[in-house]
Design a protein around this nucleic acid. Structure first.
Lengths: 211, 211
DNA sequence: TATATATCGATAAAAAAATAGCGATATTGA
DNA sequence: TCAATATCGCTATTTTTTTATCGATATATA
């Protein structure tokens, strides 16, 4: 088993490599080189080589990596082979969109159920049941769930977050546009579109100010 | 005008500060210190101070920053005051969800219209017209649009991307889960959920392997 | 008025990441 | 069989980012 200790930057690039390999892999050649990946993705050669070296040792001089092996190794490292169970809180527009997206399993994420204050008339979306909030703790006790997805309005996000942590959740994927206060050891991954937009906007500003 | 040259990391943190200030600001005190922000967001004091210093000079010893002023300065720097026009390609589930999200304007993004191969029966979603693809270039010629949002299936993403660039788009917000090939000077911001999931999953793995 | 305190800003040090260069190795083709 | 070449992996250097330390300043209080 390769070392678990990769830098955050590397970790963010690994899914990109995997994505690239899968997308271009079907009819392509059997082998792929770190150089080839770096050129296709506009990255530095050495960055790619170092990233790959940290999760695989199957690279061979002159040949490169066997594409399928590399894909498998990446998936294994990223945990796509053993799905993590998750629950979602907030069955609004966004919540339902996520529930009905069937691509998460491919990334090792399995949404068991959704919770909402007002479960509404629909009993399930995307094959996942929508349950009232008071059933949340009971389910977490019965099943070992570690990931919580928050898609409630900002005002309720912190309360939901606290509830999730009390129920044993260790990592939170936060789609609400507020900052969450959590104790040590709990990871909050903010899906913040504002960050992406800031990068876009800044790029344009620079483009126009330098011209 | 403060310098435009901030690091990418700083740029990613600025929207977080802004978000925090807005969210906690309504009934709060008039002044806010860099120290206060750093504690609330679990960041290093100096990081926050340095980030703020790069976009504002209104911080005063002992007092801190005037909250409203700081918010305004952040918004100005991030370009939230002058909305960038954008067009969206791919009026599927995700595309429509984005169209009907009315929060983008707050971030300085104004979606003018959506395009799709098959515009469907609905003429508009969220007040934005859905037009056939062949109208795209004409609109871009008439109006100066710089941001393109791609929400088409992966197979079509590259073709759409090429079309957008031909039409004069300078920055692309890519929701398709494929890597896009673009010429120098064009920014592609990938909204890749797999990256977020990788960070979550790795956090859990580390948690369980060290125990 | 004078002193204590909280906070900013600047400089310096440490850590991390990106980059560059070199040798080793396996494949290809003469 | 042997040379040429493409590619990996290692080490060193540079750059960037983060962290630590110190002095300066404005407010509050005695």
């Amino acid at each position: 088993m390769p070392s678990r200790c990769v830098s955050k930057q590397t970790l963010q690039r690994l899914p990109v490599y995997l994505n690239f390999l899968k997308q271009s892999g079907d009819g392509g050649p059997k082998h792929i080189s770190a150089t080839g990946i770096s050129q296709a993705l506009n990255l530095n050669q050495v960055v790619v080589r170092k990233d790959l070296a940290s999760i695989s040792t199957s690279g061979r001089p002159k040949v490169g990596y066997v594409r399928q092996d590399l894909i498998r190794e990446l998936e294994e490292f990223l945990g796509y082979d053993n799905a993590d169970d998750a629950i979602l809180v907030g069955a609004g527009k966004l919540g339902k969109a996520l529930l009905s997206y069937d691509g998460f399993l491919q990334y090792g994420l399995n949404i068991l159920a959704a919770f909402d204050i007002d479960p509404g008339p629909e009993e399930e979306v995307g094959g996942k049941p929508i349950l009232p909030m008071d059933k949340l703790e009971a389910l977490c006790e019965r099943v070992k769930v570690h990931i919580g997805i928050i898609t409630v309005p900002g005002d309720y996000a912190q309360a939901v977050c606290d509830l999730l942590i009390r129920s044993g959740i260790l990592a939170i994927w936060n789609f609400a546009n507020v900052h969450l206060e959590v104790p040590e050891g709990i990871l909050v991954q903010n899906e913040n579109m504002a960050v992406s937009l800031a990068l876009l906007s800044n790029h344009l500003k620079e483009k126009f100010s330098t011209k």
